[in-house]
Amino acid sequence: MAVLPSLSQPLLKIKSASHTLSRQQHEATVALSSPSASWYAAATAYYPLPHDPSIAPHIRDRLHRFRLGFPCFEEIHQGAVDITCDHYQATSPFVLQHYLLKCEATSHLRERLPPHPQPGYPGAAAAAAAVVSSIPLATLTSTVREYPPSRPEAEVTCGLAEAVTG
């Protein structure tokens, strides 16, 4: 009597093929010099964020934002927006780059890294992504918890409005 294959075998093959195709498409996007695709490849090396139930959801959201290189809400809708850092009292239109490369509150993240360009200059995005990829998750998590990245008031207000109406 023949034994039928389990459903898990074809599902595993489909999942594997899907991941391979997704990776190939992403690598093609990186080759086309997409800033967000390049950031993701440099910051994550294509490894997912480990699931750790001890990390609060709002901290996980910030970690995902760093790994994906998401600009803030205002940057997405208006382009470069000057935002004042809550920790350093400097204004920068490159919020993630400033937080990872220049902010005094996160200087401990860069102690063992080579010098990097200023936020907004060529190579700064790659340097910021390198900071994300080189820092252990526990260190990055504690930094984000203790020194949250700055957000414009409009983003906070819009986020609350969307949460209430959504």
Rank of each mutant, 00 (worst) to 15 (best):
A17P: 00
W39E: 02
Y47I: 11
C72T: 07
H51C: 07
E146W: 01
Q89P: 00
P117S: 07
P71H: 11
E104S: 13
S22I: 11
L96E: 02
Y40K: 10
R151Q: 15
R67Q: 13
E104V: 12
E74V: 06
F66A: 05
L113W: 09
C85E: 05
A56D: 14
L68G: 05
S54I: 05
L63K: 15
Q97H: 05
L49E: 13
A125C: 01
A90F: 10
K15D: 01
L160W: 10
A80W: 06
R67P: 05
S6M: 01
P10L: 09
Y121L: 14
P57K: 07
R67K: 13
Y121E: 15
S34I: 04
R151F: 07
T44A: 02
S34R: 06
G123P: 07
Y88T: 07
D61P: 03
A41W: 01
P119H: 11
A138N: 10
Q78D: 12
L4F: 03
L137P: 09
E162L: 15
H108Y: 15
H108G: 14
A28F: 05
V164S: 04
T165L: 15
V81A: 03
H116C: 14
G159H: 06
R65I: 06
V164H: 08
V132L: 12
C158R: 02
L100K: 01
E153M: 03
Y46T: 09
P149F: 08
S142V: 03
H98A: 05
Y99Q: 02
R67N: 11
A105W: 00
P122G: 07
P5I: 09
S134T: 09
H77S: 13
L21W: 06
P122Y: 08
L101E: 03
Q24I: 14
Y47P: 00
